[in-house]
Structure formats: structure tokens, C-alpha cells
Design a protein around this nucleic acid. Structure first.
Lengths: 135, 135
DNA sequence: ATCCGTGCAAATCCTTTGCACCACG
DNA sequence: CGTGGTGCAAAGGATTTGCACGGAT
């Protein structure tokens, strides 16, 4: 179980991600971390995120047309996808994963799927409510 | 039908995209364009791609962990998704789109889907063949 | 005491922007 | 002709890297 040294920076980043139910961007993580460690460098965030990724403790997501987000993996390694609102940028859970059926088809054709991601965006209920005829 | 001036740069970019069946990156487009217009600036590519996007003539894709690709829209506006090989980076068609079922569920919950994208990556048949036990 | 991880600054990479000039219509 | 598009160079934003120092083991 290779995991490097246990610095307070890494502990803090990990605990912030554990507390977040939804994916966070580097800037969101940084903003939270700075509250408790004002001198931390953003490069430290990047380096620790990389470490956590290769330790398979977090997942990387691309939402909002290319923005990168990170989210802790749960104990039971739950499989999740997300949806973002183009207007308020809030992130929501996708109820289910529609990829698995496709996977078997592709693997019959010899393509070995390693990972997949779904990006859905649109307007959430709340934003639709706020502006009656914009959409 | 707003479409701006018809410069040779824009014509060339569009014709290159028309010839390509699969999504192309900015660099791939640039490499092809430079052959015929050696003095073209990469910023011209970016600006024309933006124009083509807002004219709805091309689609934007994110493949290979965040790389951006563009592809011409067909006459009948076909709906397509792609898959990339992590090893050789070749891009393949996804046989079908598994999102539509999800859409109705989400819209019942009040979320209006504007667009969606799927990213699947893994190892293609050919690359699996080349290295017996790497994967 | 060792040496890995950090903070800081500079370097990179990709994309966007400002501006003078050129060419499409 | 007029003005919108171009090439060039510089600016921007996100991420990575080099390096000396300090803290974790």
C-alpha cells in the first residue's frame, strides 16, 4: 500500500474531499484548504490530487465543457455520474449508468473498455423556475 | 443565415473537416491546413472553429482525458458518440447512444437536458493483439 | 539524519486577445 | 472602398517543473 508521507496538507485535502458529496474543482478545493493552511501552494494541491488519483482514492470528472473536478471514491466503490446546470453550474447526481449494456457489445467487437464518462448538461428545475421563458 | 465572409482559410478548414470522418484536434486541423496555406496562424484556426461552432456546422468533443476534437455535422444531423484507444489514440464510432432513455427520466424530474456527451476509452482490438499480456 | 513533500517562482501548454494590414464583397 | 478576417506577438489561465528548505519517518 504505497501512499507516501502523511503530511497535514494531504490529510486536509483528503478530508475536504471526504466531506464533499459532489465533485469539486481545484479552485474549490484550494479555497477550502487555504482557510486552514493559509500558506499552501496550489501546486501542492495538484501534486496531492495526482497522488490520490494514482492511489485510486479519488475519481476525475470533466464537467461544464472541460472543467476538471475530483471526487472521493466511496468505500464500496460506487459507480456514479453527474449532470451540471449550464446556468447556475450546480452539479447533480445522475440516477443510473446507461453504459453497461454498451460495454458488452463493444467487448464482443474486441474493444476492451477501461473507463467511461458521461457528461450531461442543461437547465435545472430551479433555474427554469426563475426565468419563465428563457429556455 | 449569418456566416461571415468566405475566406480561403475558412473554406479550407471546412473542407478538411468535411473530408474527415472522425473528430480532429486543433493540431491535426492545423497540420493539414498549413500544407496548403503555410502562413496561416493557429489563432485563425481557433477563430474559424468558433465561427463554425456557432453556425452549428460542427460539433465539439472531449476525448482522451480532456483533449478537444471537432467534427463536421452531417446533412441529416446524425447523432454520434466516439470511443478512443488509450494506447494508439485511434478514435472509433460508438454503435449507439444510450442516453435517450435517461433523458425522459431526468425531464420528469424537471431537468431540461440541452446536450450530452459520452467518453469511453480503453484498448482497441489491434493494440490488444500487439501486446499479449499488457492489459 | 535522511530524503520526500512543500512553498515559491518560473516555465509550459493551450487558447484568447490587440492591433495594423489585407482582401472579400 | 469599407469593414471584418488575418497574421503576428503578446497576454491569459491552467497546470507542471526546478530548486532550496523544512518536516515526517
Amino acid at each position: 500500500m504505497e501512499s507516501g508521507r502523511n503530511t497535514k496538507q494531504k490529510q486536509l485535502i483528503l478530508s475536504i474531499l471526504k466531506d464533499a458529496e459532489l465533485p469539486m474543482s481545484i479552485n474549490e478545493i484550494y479555497a477550502k484548504v487555504v482557510d486552514q493552511l493559509p500558506k499552501i501552494a496550489k501546486s501542492t494541491i495538484y501534486r496531492n490530487i495526482d497522488a490520490l488519483l494514482s492511489q485510486n482514492l479519488i475519481d476525475k470528472y470533466h464537467l461544464n465543457d472541460n472543467e476538471v473536478f475530483y471526487r472521493i471514491k466511496s468505500d464500496r466503490n460506487e459507480h456514479k455520474h453527474f449532470v451540471i446546470c449550464d446556468d447556475c453550474k450546480k452539479v447533480f447526481d445522475l440516477p443510473s449508468c446507461p453504459i453497461h449494456e454498451i460495454e458488452s457489445t463493444m467487448e464482443e467487437e474486441g474493444f476492451l473498455i477501461k473507463k467511461h464518462q458521461i457528461q450531461i448538461s442543461g437547465i435545472c428545475k430551479e433555474c427554469i423556475g426563475k426565468s419563465k421563458n428563457k429556455y
